[in-house]
């Protein structure tokens, strides 16, 4: 299938599921503003992530996409100078309210990072199962989980013969698919992906995108990407972030991916999606 055909199918698909956008939102950010020290980097971000949809966050570097995605599972607070206003609602409840355990939130809202970060002290198999061990989850069918998640991440056929080798022996692209499998093994209901394909070759990228489409039947996915075609291929909805010179980042425009790329309302969105800046 050529890229053009693929995009066409993706467009049709997203038309079909546009009805799903009306589904009750699972994750929702309300007036989220973010500071590092005194510097405000994000202002009044309001966005909905309906259940079992894929939302792409696009925008030039330094506009706060990665910062924003880290507020969604409380990784933001690990940076000492970080501050935040507004609320993030998960299943209707603010994840920043004082009675919520961040560990519990991160278990349900998983994350895949830009740089592959397999645990070097563990084997490939151990890495896939590490989430279960680290979070104290009890599961019996470990072999099934390993096979299922590695298949979903498009890595199974490459590593099934050497599950007990060190994870560090894998190539960069394989490591990235391994950490995706690792994130899936704890069965999160939301998966945050911060430029998951920036270190991958086109073939692996395609595998990951297929995985994302498959997963979106059961999981709500938020993906930061610099690759417009990727956003078009995988995302139901798209939000365009922008930070003007010296000002905090904010959402310029959001909506169905087809609308954002087809008939954007804002001139800046039009310029960006057509590659005229950023």
């Amino acid at each position: 299938m050529s890229t053009a055909e693929f995009e066409e199918v993706a467009m049709m698909e997203s038309d079909l599921i546009s009805a799903r956008k009306q589904a009750p939102s699972e994750l929702r950010a309300e007036n989220v503003s973010v500071w590092f020290g005194k510097r405000k980097v994000l202002e009044n971000v309001n966005i909905d992530f309906p259940k079992n949809t894929v939302t792409a966050l696009i925008g030039p570097s330094g506009c706060g996409k990665s910062t924003f995605i880290r507020t969604l599972n409380r990784l933001h607070e690990l940076i000492p100078s970080a501050a935040l206003a507004g609320s993030v609602l998960y299943e209707g409840k603010d994840i920043y309210s004082s009675d919520v355990d961040p560990v519990h939130i991160r278990l349900q809202i998983g994350m895949v990072f830009q740089k592959p970060n397999p645990f070097p002290s563990m084997t490939i198999r151990g890495n896939v199962l590490s989430g279960l061990k680290l979070s104290g989850m009890k599961r019996d069918n470990h072999d099934d989980i390993v096979e299922h998640t590695l298949t979903a991440a498009g890595l199974w056929t490459e590593v099934k013969e050497r599950l007990n080798h060190a994870a560090g022996d894998l190539s960069g692209g394989q490591q990235q698919r391994l950490v995706i499998a690792r994130a899936l093994a704890v069965q999160p209901s939301v998966l945050l992906m911060d430029e998951p394909c920036s270190a991958l070759d086109p073939a692996s990228t395609l595998k990951i995108e297929e995985t994302i489409r498959q997963l979106s039947k059961e999981v709500t996915i938020v993906i930061v990407t610099h690759n417009m075609q990727q956003a078009v291929r995988v995302a139901d909805n798209t939000a365009f972030f922008l930070a003007q010179e010296g000002e905090p980042g904010h959402i310029v425009e959001q909506g169905l991916t087809t609308d954002i790329f087809g008939q954007p309302q804002d001139q800046r969105t039009l310029d960006y999606v057509n590659g005229r800046f950023g």
């Binding site: 349900q108 061990k133 680290l134």
Partner: peptide, 29 residues
């Protein structure tokens, strides 16, 4: 030990203590 390992473990729903015992210290063995 790169911070990515710590955030990676925390993002999997690990507690601080488990992150240190099962990820950071083994990586630094």
């Amino acid at each position: 030990i790169p911070d990515e390992l710590r955030t990676g473990a925390l993002a999997l729903g690990s507690t601080r203590a488990r992150t240190v015992m099962r990820v950071v210290l083994p990586a630094a063995k």
